[in-house]
């Protein structure tokens, strides 16, 4: 089990830094021109709000360690693996085309979500091939989208 507290602290820190970056970058765009607001006006205020609430949340999580529970390690691994499979699809599509790349993507996702036995993998593979054909019909033929 991984405690969610560390994730919350991390996300608050990232959002807080993003808020500070917005203030800095927004000031660079120009806060005001004469008496009227410029391109940086809105980002500066949003950045300030984001930084403020992130800091408040960060402090709250530090003070109250029992606010959130934990998440199973396998679940986090599953999120990482699905994301990796999708990144693989994005990269493979450039070389093999989207339709061909979608088949290993779907099989990989099926396996990540529990298809381990040979029979299940065979079923997922059949679904993947059938789905690739449906995707070709819907996106390639009906919607005439130029697929990679």
């Amino acid at each position: 089990m991984i405690p969610l507290r560390s994730f919350d602290l991390g996300l608050s820190a990232i959002f807080g830094l993003l808020g500070l970056y917005m203030i800095w970058q927004g000031s660079g765009y120009g806060y005001q021109e004469g008496s009227v607001p410029s391109a940086g006006f809105f980002p500066v205020w949003i950045g300030a709000g984001l930084a403020l609430f992130s800091a408040l949340n960060f402090l709250k999580v530090i003070r109250q360690s029992d606010l959130l529970g934990s998440v199973e390690r396998m679940e986090v691994v599953r999120v990482g693996l699905v994301s990796l499979a999708l990144v693989g699809f994005v990269l493979l599509s450039q070389f093999m085309g989207m339709l061909v790349s979608s088949v290993p993507l779907m099989i990989a996702i099926g396996c990540i979500f529990g298809a381990r036995a040979a029979r299940s993998i065979a079923a997922v593979s059949a679904i993947a091939v059938g789905m690739a054909f449906i995707l070709y019909l819907v996106f390639g033929v009906v919607l005439a989208i130029p697929l990679l």
Partner: peptide, 16 residues
């Protein structure tokens, strides 16, 4: 089961 459903849904997402 998600192992049969999600591959198709994720592929629809990617193509969409």
């Amino acid at each position: 089961r998600p192992s049969y459903l999600f591959p198709a849904v994720i592929a629809i997402i990617a193509f969409g």
